[in-house]
Write a protein that binds this DNA or RNA. Sequence first.
DNA 1: CCTCTCTCCGTACAGCGTATCGGCGGAGAC
DNA 2: GTCTCCGCCGATACGCTGTACGGAGAGAGG
Lengths: 198, 198
Amino acid sequence: MAAAIEIADAEGLEAVSIRRVATALGVRPMSLYTHIERKEDLFDLMADEVNRELIIEGELPSHWREAITMIARREHEVILRHSWVIDLVARHPRVGPNGLRHGEQNLCALSGLDVDLATAARIVTAVDHYMTGYVIRERLLRDQRADHLAEPYIQQMINEGDFPHLRRAMREGVPQQESFEEGLRWLLDGIERSLGRS
Amino acid sequence: MAAAIEIADAEGLEAVSIRRVATALGVRPMSLYTHIERKEDLFDLMADEVNRELIIEGELPSHWREAITMIARREHEVILRHSWVIDLVARHPRVGPNGLRHGEQNLCALSGLDVDLATAARIVTAVDHYMTGYVIRERLLRDQRADHLAEPYIQQMINEGDFPHLRRAMREGVPQQESFEEGLRWLLDGIERSLGRS
DNA sequence: CCTCTCTCCGTACAGCGTATCGGCGGAGAC
DNA sequence: GTCTCCGCCGATACGCTGTACGGAGAGAGG
């Protein structure tokens, strides 16, 4: 599992093949099947190992917003480091021991709040959705290094077509940079407001 | 391309193989390579075709919030129908003509707002992140049909471990259902508030 | 009619996950 | 000591994948 994670971190998920992992372990491919039943099991293990890193040791901040923010930041940082987990959990749900612990901690962060469990769960998942989308995009920007929109054929399309806003954005050199914190703040502001109102 | 989309809709992205598409077209596999250079090109075409569906015909609502909501709803509906696009654009960016048109329309929706282009872009991407995460999760829930957390071994883990909140959630039967609209409202509320403040 | 281009395609190769089966070494029973 | 059983390793093989390579045939322009 550690070997597989190392490969995935370095070269992406599709580089993780049974033969590749076996080679890294100095063993023949079929030997792996004494410990796992299918390759998916290996993926499950890898995902749960990342979930372990998501768990925050020690006390959570007592204020729900700080606690959720802290968890979201941790998720952002860890998942960006192992960005292949996104593809794993997007394929189908992988609920391991550490996944449960992480879920528990999420609900725990909201326990000071006077809302029912269903609402707490929806808050958690909403933040999770934002985080997920953000990490996916950040990975894209990172992996392609340069600004994709600067590619010649795209510039040409923008210049020749009817794209006033895009053309202006291109001329002004609007950075694609975004901020995890800003979007998170927006979302939490909205949640906070709906709490105050209800 | 249409044949490939049909296969992907019905059986998922991994069912889209060169041989499969060729068979659907009544043609030999290698013939496809006359029209595309690599399989990725086919994926590019498929993604842009979905982007075409994202474009809203006619006038957008003049109020930014209504416009963005309308676009987000369209994205939600269309992408859930072709949920494999998420995996495509998550792998690497695919900017085709329709993708640009859609981007233009997004900025257009915010053009009545008194913010600079960079801020507008960040607003658009933040909403996009939420939508992306939401669709991924909704697809998970749909594809597995039943409630995954209800599986015996998970129940057992929850009951035997130290998971007070999860246990309570299980006992109370907290539904996993979430609402696209609610989270979107939260996010837009937060954005609106930050606009008013600045 | 010759040539050029465009499309189709047969074959082949390297890689994948994994089903099947066989061998080997250590632990426990007598 | 010997016998048995079980856990681990592994060789081979099957069917799948994307695609490199080269050839065949048809239609167009000279």
